Amino acid sequence: MSFRPLCLLLCCLALPAHADITVGLLTSRNDEQTLEDWQPILNDLAAVVGQPVKAWVGNDRAVLLNKIKNNEIQVARVDNKLALDAVENAKAEVFASLVQSGNQATYRSVMLVRANSPIKNAEQLLQHPQQLNYASGIHGSTAEYYIPHYHLFLQKNIIPENYFKHIVYGNAEQSFIALATQQVDVAVSNSFDLEQLKEKYPRDHAKMRLIWQSPEFAFDPLIQRQDLPAPLKNKIKQFFTQYGKTGNNTAQAKQRLYYADQLAGFIPADNRSLRQVTDLQLFHDLFKLTLNKKLAHTEKTQQEENYYKRYRQLTQLLGGAK
């Protein structure tokens, strides 16, 4: 019996398999449309890394995080809060962030009413307890949940769940439609998605008015699993940060970026970019804890200690103090 075939078989088994790369796309739009818009970019990525690239598209944050944790997704476009969860719990790291058309690297959360609403500003919005219906962002989202909760409501000692008559939860487009169809009186959005919604629903947008906007926040990041082979990680980072800036097809790449998410491109970033949302989350949790009248003093004290302990751990994980 010849040992040569057996040796060849064992050698083949020992070689690393070129598994497909799956890119997760957290979206606030239609899943099919998002995939169609991003597919040309993913095709270009596949050509650069020399491996098949697939996509997972959706707005279920828990599902996306779990897929990253289980290595079913290796690269993802997410928001800052989900990136923080992935860095903390799913062996992920930030390697780039998105830049919107017009070279805007930041965004703001915004609050909208219909143009004929008697509410003219945030102060008036907060003078109608148990009278208004509100379209909120999904629990845990950065732009439509954490930012307005902290900067608009909690600093005024208001818990939205107690203040509004009724709350519906959804993504930016669902909230926009809820306001346009008069299902709610006020809706949260963000400056990035609102530009796309303005283009998609110009008549509805013309019948709305902005009554509040938050401070600026760092734009959505791109993350990848830490345990990807170093050469592959470098290729992926180089692809995104140079896409639309160098090469023979920059004009085509710029067009694909715009169609994908009205993007201008991507810039290098790291885990430190998540410090802003880490601070926001701590302040948010502490405010809600302070206003929670159901917990005993000892329970509040213990919970507060837990919040600060996690905050210190996250600070170290993200590169230490500023």
Results as ranks from 00 to 15, higher is better:
Cys7Phe: 12
Leu8Asn: 04
Leu8Met: 11
Leu9Pro: 00
Leu13Ile: 00
Ala14Arg: 04
Ala14His: 03
His18Asp: 13
Thr27Trp: 05
Glu32Tyr: 09
Gln33Met: 10
Leu35Gly: 10
Glu36Val: 09
Trp38Asn: 05
Pro40Ile: 07
Ile41Cys: 02
Leu42Gly: 02
Asn43His: 12
Asp44Ser: 14
Val57Gly: 00
Gly58Glu: 02
Asn59Lys: 12
Asn59Leu: 02
Arg61Met: 03
Lys67Arg: 14
Asn71Lys: 13
Glu72Val: 02
Glu72Ala: 09
Ala76Lys: 08
Arg77Lys: 14
Glu88Ile: 09
Glu88Met: 12
Asn89Asp: 14
Ala90Thr: 11
Ala92Thr: 04
Val94Lys: 06
Val94Phe: 00
Ser97Glu: 08
Gln100His: 07
Ser109Ile: 01
Val110Ile: 15
Leu112Lys: 07
Val113Asp: 01
Ala115Phe: 01
Ala115Asn: 06
Ala115Gln: 13
Asn116Thr: 10
Ser117Trp: 09
Ile119Gly: 02
Asn121Asp: 13
Ala122Ile: 04
Gln124Pro: 05
Gln127Ile: 08
His128Asp: 05
Gln130Lys: 10
Leu132Tyr: 03
Leu132Met: 08
Ile138His: 06
Gly140Ala: 06
Thr142Lys: 00
Glu144Cys: 09
Ile147Val: 15
Pro148Asn: 11
Pro148Thr: 08
His149Pro: 01
Leu152Asp: 11
Leu154Pro: 11
Gln155Ala: 07
Gln155Arg: 14
Lys156Glu: 12
Asn157Thr: 10
Pro160Thr: 08
Asn162Asp: 15
Lys165Met: 01
His166Gln: 15
His166Phe: 12
Ile167Leu: 06
Tyr169Arg: 14
Tyr169Phe: 14
Asn171Lys: 13
Leu179Val: 11
Thr181Gln: 12
Ala187Asn: 04
Asn190Lys: 02
Glu195Lys: 13
Gln196Asn: 15
Gln196His: 13
Tyr201Trp: 12
Pro202Asn: 12
Arg203Asp: 15
Asp204Ala: 15
His205Gln: 14
Lys207Glu: 15
Gln213His: 15
Glu216Arg: 13
Pro229Tyr: 01
Pro229Arg: 00
Leu232Val: 08
Lys233Phe: 03
Lys233Gln: 15
Lys235Arg: 12
Ile236Gly: 07
Lys237Gln: 13
Lys237Tyr: 00
Phe239Lys: 05
Gln242Ala: 05
Tyr243Gln: 01
Asn248Tyr: 03
Gln255Asp: 10
Tyr258Phe: 04
Asp261Ala: 14
Gln262Ser: 11
Gln262Ala: 07
Phe266Arg: 00
Pro268Cys: 02
Arg272Pro: 00
Leu274Ala: 06
Gln276Tyr: 07
Val277Glu: 01
His284Cys: 06
Phe287Tyr: 15
Leu289Trp: 02
Asn292Met: 04
Asn292Arg: 05
Thr298Ile: 11
Glu299Asn: 09
Glu304Val: 00
Glu305Asp: 02
Glu305Met: 04
Tyr307Asp: 01
Lys309Arg: 13
Arg310Ala: 06
Tyr311Ile: 03
Thr315Ala: 06
Thr315Leu: 13
Thr315Glu: 12
